[in-house]
Structure formats: C-alpha cells, structure tokens
Amino acid sequence: MDLLRSVPIFAGIEPSRLKLIAFTADSIAYRAGQVLVRQGQPGDAAYVLVEGEAEVSVETASGDYVVATLGAGDVVGEISILCDSPRTATVTASTDVSALRVRKDSFLQLLRQFPEIAVEVMRTLAERLTHSNEELVRARNLAASRDNEA
C-alpha cells in the first residue's frame, strides 16, 4: 500500500481502492540491462516504475536512439494498450528496477473506475508528446545544419 501511495498516478486514491489496485498488479524486478518492453511487440501490460531508472529508445536506420529516461512513478507500455497497437519503443532498465505490472484488462478497468488515474495518464502522454516534438525539432535542426556544412 505504501508503495502504491508513493506513485503519483495513485497518490489521490483512497486506501480501500488502493487494495484493489494492489490485488490486480504484479510486483516485478529487472536488473540493469534487462528489457521491460520491446518495440514492435504486442502490448499486454503497462508498467509503473516504483524504483530505479529505465531508458526509452526507438529503432532508427542508424541504430537505437534514446528518447527519454524514466524514473519512479513513471508509467510505460500504456500507449500500446490504449491504442491496441504494437509497442512504440523499447524500454530497458538502466539500473535495477522494481515495477508494478498491470495487465491490459486490469489497466483499462482502472482507467474506467478511477477518472483521476485516466487524467494523470493523459497528462503524462501529453508531456511525452511535447518532449517528442522538441526532440524532432532538434533532430531536424541538426540535420539541416549538417546539410549546410556539406
């Protein structure tokens, strides 16, 4: 219960409801270097990082490109669940990580039952989109400056 209370998306939920969430989630641990989710694979669960850090990377023609670093309280894997699409990125533990694994059906049920969780997930997705757009602009500017130098 204390573990769940420390996660921002669950912070405002009353203790009796936190028990329901704890019952539906699996506690899982990853060692540094282990992959939590792999780009292109089907999404069957979302993960809430409880401790540790992980890197989010996407495959490009020139190799993997790290687009974000995640820490305690961050949620990963929800995009493929919400969109019913393959994973959009690979998430790899950069340190030892403990996480809560919430299966697809349970995650969607949580969003329906607890609007405050849905709002927090939307806020997180909006922040990621903003960050991705900023990274895209930086990459385009870098490519343009390289073209101008050549």
Results as ranks from 00 to 15, higher is better:
A93V: 10
V91C: 06
R123Y: 07
S106R: 09
M122N: 12
S94L: 04
E120Q: 14
S106Y: 01
A118N: 12
K104W: 06
Q109K: 13
E127I: 01
T90W: 09
T90Q: 07
R123I: 08
S94A: 09
V91D: 04
K104A: 15
D96F: 00
L108T: 05
R87G: 02
V102L: 14
V119C: 09
V102Y: 04
T90K: 02
V119P: 02
A93H: 06
L125Q: 07
F114E: 03
V97W: 06
R87T: 00
E127G: 09
R101M: 12
T92Q: 10
L110C: 07
R112V: 09
L125M: 13
V119G: 06
R101C: 11
D84R: 15
T124Y: 05
Q109W: 14
L125W: 05
R112I: 07
L111N: 12
A89G: 05
L100A: 04
T95A: 10
T92R: 14
R103V: 07
D84S: 14
P115C: 09
A118H: 11
A126C: 13
R101F: 02
P86W: 08
S85M: 08
A99T: 03
L110F: 13
R123D: 14
D105W: 05
D105M: 11
L125K: 03
R87K: 09
A126H: 04
R112Q: 15
R103D: 13
R112C: 12
S80Q: 06
R112A: 13
L111E: 08
R112W: 08
Q109F: 10
S106G: 06
D105Q: 13
L108Y: 09
S80L: 00
S80K: 03
K104I: 03
S85Q: 11
R103M: 12
Q113A: 13
I117R: 01
R112H: 12
S98E: 12
F107A: 04
T92S: 12
P86R: 11
E120I: 00
Q109H: 14
S98T: 14
A93G: 11
A99D: 05
L82R: 05
D96I: 00
Q113P: 01
L111M: 13
E120G: 08
R123M: 12
S85P: 02
T124C: 08
D105P: 07
A89M: 06
F107E: 09
L125S: 00
S94M: 01
F107T: 03
A93Q: 04
P86T: 09
V91F: 06
R101T: 02
D105T: 08
T90C: 12
P115Q: 10
P115I: 06
I81L: 15
Q109V: 07
A89H: 02
A118W: 11
V119E: 13
A89Q: 04
F114L: 14
V121K: 10
T92G: 08
E127A: 13
L110G: 02
S98D: 09
V91Y: 05
T124P: 03
